[in-house]
Design a protein around this nucleic acid. Structure first.
Lengths: 346, 346
DNA sequence: TTGAAAGCGTTACCAA
DNA sequence: TTGGTAACGCTTTCAA
């Protein structure tokens, strides 16, 4: 059923309709001046021919591709999915289309993707985090288009920023643990050489413990980010072996927290009776788990919305107008996995 | 830091290097005949100028955009993520780039995306499932490029297919329930008007029950797909209210199964002692949950790999060569949530 | 409201 | 191995 011939072009539609190809071009631009009658006639003929406008050509000619390049670490992550949702919704009214890529938490892969995407001449580039290879940084700075870094507060931003402090977010959890009376506090995360946001969380965790004068050695950092539930479970096994008297554990994400918690339960420990567990990211899972897991909500969707707002301003509404970077305030959601007061006797 | 001037072009690089732009073009094609020396010189000059090739222009000229359009229902789904991973890996050796979009399980949105993507002149289109709007079907048939439908076995395929029978997969679970001695079996899923694969699973569920001569009325179908853990939980609440004697429940996904299971546990029911629960999709969650959840593995990653194999054949290796469609065999993973024999006395 | 001509930045094709 | 020329399919610009 595949058509052997080439795809129809504007000239084909023009010939069939008896107008110039310029008029056909106008018929496909909503704000162009064409008589309603001709426009309808052209559109109808196009639909019949199976004609679809070629953005490759129109992009070349108009120098507006309609692409916004977006690079995220993972496509299998409820948090980034929420950010994308916020972005998509915020851009629905525009003609911008996301050119989406994921890096698997690898800055080298980010560099590759950014270079690849730049060839498509996007009108803006959105990357996750503030850590990039030197070459990638150079690409972004020389891109000649607006650049946003999200999910972080880089010390040397390239251009626009919508993010939060991962370190400060981790401190929230430490203080919560402290308030609940926990003193022997551990951390479970992945290999920090890749997941830079995880690294920041761990740094914030350590800094907070130090300020409180507590032991900062109970850290299990292992596994390729994003660490899975399974890796969270095995990390907890190590934690319990190495420091059996640990009272509370902060995990780099809700997924690893769930794995860690179930590992405790399999080992016969009660959560939070014997050990408290905190996660990160406010996944559905943390709300449904038994007990429900204390976590940190970073407003993932808001990040996407803010980025979209900025994009609309710099790209369509009032080009060149400056927009302030946005700092999001993470929120701690205290739940059963850390609240000893709520503990049931079992 | 944003450069005000226009991005450099091949002519710019050519002028600086003292060659024609044609030679510059060749210097960026790996298999073109340019002396190693000139190539190095050109590449170096380009890097210094911050020149990045413009695929918009090269695509127009060569009629090869390097895009493969991929439309999936959701970007926050471990199964589709696995399929994408298989695809990405299988295409790594090529110059093909994924143009990725998600529909939120809405065929109307699929139609919109397909039209949008077709404007980019992709070299192939990959869609999820075999149900499309009539207009979308027409687009795909007239696209003039290879089309693959995945995650389903459509009765009237458009072109290539890599999928499995969702109905047959559901039957696996019913037979497993039956083998375990369960007779009063229910189903929890989402609003079937959107999630056509969920619909097929439910149809397979009903058909299998009928063949066994069992009651087919215990169905809770509610919520916008993909139904969440929370919706799975509330569906289970309804199920228990309406049919308190239900012995086993199949859920449309592992996520809803987890929600349903925790709801039972919150209600004081033991799983599988009082009620058995089965999921779908072989998520990590089903393995880590307590008890672990019986599920169905559909080989999501293999689907992506097979699609990539097909793409490489039709697009690069030997264009025009026919490749047979692939039917994947789902596998049931029997686990604690349905195995009464393994049940611990508590 | 419509049309003609001149690009947009690249590659195919042919020639040297 | 290199270069010149003519597209690729559209939009910008100017003119009618």
């Amino acid at each position: 059923m595949r058509k052997p011939g080439k795809a129809p072009t504007m000239s084909d539609v023009a010939r069939v309709t008896g107008v110039s190809s310029m008029t056909v071009s106008r018929a496909f631009k909503d704000d162009a001046s064409v008589s309603k009658e001709t426009r309808d006639r052209i559109r109808k003929a196009a639909e019949k021919l199976g004609y679809v406008i070629d953005s490759t050509a129109s992009g070349l000619s108009s120098r507006r591709t309609g692409f916004v390049a977006v690079v995220i670490p993972s496509i299998n992550n409820a948090n980034f999915a929420d950010t994308l949702r916020g972005l998509t919704e915020g851009l629905r009214s525009t003609n911008l289309q996301l050119l989406l890529g994921y890096t698997d938490y690898d800055v080298k892969e980010e560099e590759r993707l950014v270079e690849l995407f730049l060839r498509r001449r996007p009108e803006a580039v959105i990357v996750t985090g503030g850590y990039h290879t030197a070459r990638c940084r150079k690409f972004l700075k020389n891109a000649g288009v607006p650049v946003a870094e999200m999910w972080d507060l880089p010390s040397k931003p390239i251009d626009h920023v919508v993010g939060f402090s991962n370190a400060a977010a981790a401190e929230l959890m430490v203080h919560h643990f402290h308030d609940q009376g926990f003193r022997k506090i551990g951390f479970i995360g992945g290999d920090t050489s890749r997941d830079t946001r995880g690294k920041d969380r761990r740094a914030g965790f350590v800094a907070a413990l130090e300020k409180l004068g507590l032991d900062t050695t109970r850290i299990i950092a292992w596994g390729t980010p994003p660490i899975t539930m399974r890796e969270g479970a095995s990390a907890m096994r190590q934690m319990l072996e190495q420091w059996p008297d640990t009272e509370a554990v902060m995990c780099v994400s809700d997924l690893s927290a769930f794995g860690a918690m179930t590992e405790c339960q399999r080992a016969g420990l009660s959560v939070p009776g014997d050990i408290a567990i905190g996660g990160f990211g406010s996944y559905d899972l943390s709300e449904l788990a038994i007990p429900d897991i204390t976590t940190i909500d970073v407003g993932a969707r808001d990040i996407g919305r803010h980025v979209a707002d900025w994009l609309r301003t710099v790209l369509t509404d009032s080009p060149g107008q400056a927009v302030d970077s946005v700092s999001i305030e993470p929120k701690l959601l205290a739940r059963g996995s850390t609240l000893r007061s709520l503990q049931t006797s079992d």
